[in-house]
Amino acid sequence: MRRDRLRPGADHDEQGSTLLLTIFYCVLGLSLILVVVSATSLYLERKRLFTLADGTALAAAESWSLDAVQVEGDHLSLELDSADVGRAATAYLGDAVHELHDVELVRAASDDGQSATITMRAVWYAPIHTELVPLLVPIEVTATARSVFH
C-alpha cells in the first residue's frame, strides 16, 4: 500500500469524477425516455389515422345505390363509381370526430369497381421538440374496403 494514500487529502484529484458520470447518464436516460415517448406518440397517431381511413373506406364502399346492383342468375353484383366513393369519403370525414392534425383526403377511388381505396395524410407533431426528435412528421395511410353480398 502506498503511503500517500494514507495521508488526508491525497485523493483530491478524483473528486467530481462520479458527478460527471452521473450527469452524463442522466442526460442519456432522459434522451432515451424522450425518444421512446415520441416514437410511441407517432405510432399511436398513425394507428388513429389508419382507423379513420378504415372507417372512411367502409363508408365509401357502402356508397352504392340500388340502381348499381346487377342480378346475374342467383348472383348479385354491383359496380362502385369513383365519384360516389369520393363524395361518401368526404361526407364521412366531415362528420367524423378525431383529434388528428391537418387531415387530408389524398385519394378516394374504386379501382376495380368492387372496393373503395382511401389514402389519407395527416401531420404528427412531437410532444416535446428537441434536436433528437423532429418537430413534425407527415404520415400517410391507405385503407381498402369491399361491399359484399351473400
Rank of each mutant, 00 (worst) to 15 (best):
E99D: 15
A83E: 15
D95V: 06
L80A: 11
F50G: 01
L42P: 02
A57S: 15
E104R: 07
R46N: 01
A61S: 15
A88C: 06
A83S: 14
R107D: 08
D84E: 14
E45K: 01
T40A: 14
V123H: 03
A61P: 02
L80K: 05
A109Y: 05
R107K: 15
R46P: 00
S65N: 10
L42N: 01
L52F: 09
D102Y: 01
T51Y: 12
A59P: 03
L80P: 09
Y92M: 04
E99G: 13
D74C: 08
S110R: 02
D67T: 13
E79N: 05
V71T: 11
L44P: 00
L66P: 00
H101R: 06
D84L: 12
L42F: 00
G73V: 08
A53G: 11
A59Y: 02
E79S: 05
R46C: 00
R121N: 04
L80Y: 10
F50N: 03
S115D: 07
L105Y: 04
A91M: 06
G113D: 12
A68T: 09
V71Y: 06
Y43F: 12
D81L: 11
S77G: 14
D54C: 02
R48I: 01
L52T: 08
L58F: 11
D74S: 15
M120H: 06
H101V: 02
Q114R: 13
A96N: 06
V71G: 04
S41Y: 01
H75F: 11
D67P: 03
E79K: 02
T51M: 13
S82Y: 13
L80I: 13
V103F: 10
K47H: 13
R48C: 00
D111C: 03
S115K: 03
T51Q: 14
V97C: 10
E79W: 03
G73F: 09
V85K: 14
T51H: 14
Q70F: 08
A53Q: 07
S110E: 06
M120E: 07
H75N: 12
D102C: 00
A108D: 10
A109D: 14
F50M: 06
Q70V: 11
V103G: 06
S110W: 03
G94C: 12
L42C: 02
I118M: 13
H101Q: 09
Q70G: 04
A109V: 14
A89K: 04
A116L: 02
S110C: 07
V123L: 09
W64C: 02
H98D: 08
H75A: 13
M120C: 04
E99M: 10
G73N: 08
Y92T: 01
V71E: 15
A88M: 03
L105E: 13
V97H: 15
A60R: 03
A68V: 03
H98E: 08
E104G: 00
D67W: 04
V85H: 07
R46F: 00
D67M: 11
V106N: 10
K47I: 12
G55F: 01
L78I: 09
D74K: 10
